[in-house]
């Protein structure tokens, strides 16, 4: 009997494994809500969409507005800035994107981006850096006039939030 038990799987082994598996699933199901409570709560998620009137921003200036707790740059670009961004060959870019991809058609003067540096989340300083766009003081990332990463540790361009123009001056973010 002893040798037989060593070589074959018994009904008892199956019951042990099955019981253990059910217990593990039960433990995981119990732990998950204890972790999930840390995720963004309903009141945070409720602030997902905003509308903003851009008409008050003069050419060559930008404002910072809040969306989902994140700062967002809205910049009214000058024709010179747009030209400068368009003149950059894609091969010069770390995260290639054309100026058209960075803005909405017919609204090229408006550049709307989440204002957190894609490196570690600091807010870059406007009208600064080697490429006339933004410069992040934390770790020295330079962005150009289309918010594209040009130099420094940040891996990608400044992130574009989902947005659309409801009219020529009213934009909905989120």
């Amino acid at each position: 009997m002893a040798t037989q038990a060593q070589h074959s799987t018994t009904r008892r082994d199956f019951i042990f494994v099955a019981t253990g598996s059910v217990a593990a699933v039960g433990a995981a199901a119990t732990v998950w809500p204890l972790i999930n409570q840390m995720n963004p709560d309903a009141s945070t998620l409720a602030l997902a969409s905003i509308e903003f009137d851009v008409s008050a921003i003069p050419e060559g200036q930008s404002v910072t507005i809040m969306w989902r707790g994140l700062p967002v740059f809205v910049r009214h670009r000058t024709p010179a800035e747009i030209e400068e961004a368009k003149a950059v060959p894609l091969s010069d870019l770390k995260d290639p994107a054309t100026d058209e991809q960075r803005t909405k058609e017919g609204h090229e003067q408006w550049l709307i981006m989440i204002a957190n540096c894609t490196h570690l989340g600091c807010v870059p300083v406007g009208d600064a850096g080697d490429f006339d766009g933004w410069f992040c003081p934390c770790h020295g990332s330079h962005y150009d006039t289309a918010g594209r990463i040009r130099k420094g540790p940040a891996p990608t361009n400044l992130v574009l939030p989902p947005y659309e123009f409801l009219s020529d001056t009213l934009v909905q973010i989120g």
């Binding site: 840390m38 995720n39 963004p40 989902r68 707790g69 994140l70 957190n116």
Partner: peptide, 13 residues
């Protein structure tokens, strides 16, 4: 990141 912060940015949670 959102789990650690409890939001899209650093805030009250």
């Amino acid at each position: 990141l959102e789990l650690l912060r409890g939001g899209f940015s650093v805030g009250n949670p």
